[in-house]
Nucleic acid binder design. Structure first.
Ligand SMILES: [Mn+2]
Ligand SMILES: [Mn+2]
Ligand SMILES: [Zn+2]
Ligand SMILES: [Zn+2]
Lengths: 162, 162
DNA sequence: TTGATGATGAATGTCATTTTCAATAAGGAG
DNA sequence: CTCCTTATTGAAAATGACATTCATCATCAA
């Protein structure tokens, strides 16, 4: 199906370079904790929460990384284009996923079982740009989430999560 | 431009009827607090927060309505189709707006000044349905938010909110 | 009219995220 | 390399939106 083919070592290095660039141009300093979080995030396959990331940033090398540090690092990872924030469902909090060297996509979520499907429509992307232009805007991003019921849930009569 | 032409008295009554229907089929009872909140929400022009709604539900008639009651009422108003939930910006919490007897639309937000433009694209709506079908889903809803910089902010060099 | 049960106000709890602050580390100047 | 300024971090406390609890009040069917 869809394999988010993880980044190879060279890719990880390019990602770290992008992060360092952002860090530098903000007058910040290099730090191992930050790169530990970045690596854990980049190696994470699929969607993850802050809590997931805190956990993985720990057991990577016995080095602990506190939640507050992860929270402080996330905005930088977003700005450096390593990650993207997604809201998979009206409840369940904020999720993240790798965006670095990965094609853009949006999400279709089943309100019955929570299954998440990734999709991409160049047609939609194009219309989005047209809409923005028609209002004098220059697009910098968007979030688009479709909700519905999957085949299995419809057969099971599951219209929303228990 | 775009006037969300408020509901007339008859419209308000139809909305209350829709709410009462939902309330009844859930085995709940009629209550004045609930309708006070519903009316305040329906009469609210534009986008509003829970806090805004609590405030308006109060000074409507000297009758106070506590925040917890408003929070308890909101899900019913959503289910009855009187309101719709929107996430206007990556930060700023949850907003609501009237959906009853109002055409569907999505939002384009300026990341510089926070201006919000409403748009509607039948083409996008159609592609959304096609995407859902292609994955065996039946759509029940979606949220779509475009982010960008408006003309004024670009001229001013404002790329993101202070 | 009344009993069963839903609704409300007020207080309290919850949970994600932010802020604070003292201790530590980075890195440029000398 | 050493010093000094300033960013960074862990740890704890603070926030803030929203949920839950519980005693009291209101609704409505019998
Ligand atoms: Mn994804
Ligand atoms: Mn709107
Ligand atoms: Zn499903
Ligand atoms: Zn603007």
């Amino acid at each position: 199906m869809k394999k988010p083919h993880s980044l190879d070592e060279a890719g990880l290095q390019r990602a770290l370079a992008a992060l360092r660039r952002v860090v530098r141009e903000k007058g910040l300093r290099a730090s191992s904790a930050r790169e530990r979080v970045a690596l854990a995030a980049l190696r994470y396959g699929g969607h993850f929460t802050v809590e997931d990331l805190v956990r993985r940033s720990k057991d990577e090398r016995l080095e602990e990384t506190h939640a507050s540090t992860v929270y402080r690092t996330l905005p930088l990872l977003l700005e450096a284009g390593l990650l993207e924030e997604i809201r998979v469902h009206r409840d369940e909090g904020t999720f993240y996923e790798r965006a670095f060297e990965r094609e853009h996509h949006d999400h279709l979520v089943c309100v019955g079982c929570g299954a998440v499907v990734e999709f991409h429509s160049e047609e939609i992307e194009e219309v989005q740009r047209e809409v923005a232009v028609s209002f004098g805007f220059v697009l910098t991003g968007h979030s688009h989430e479709l909700r519905g019921t999957c085949t299995a849930c419809r057969e099971r009569g599951r219209e929303s999560r228990a």
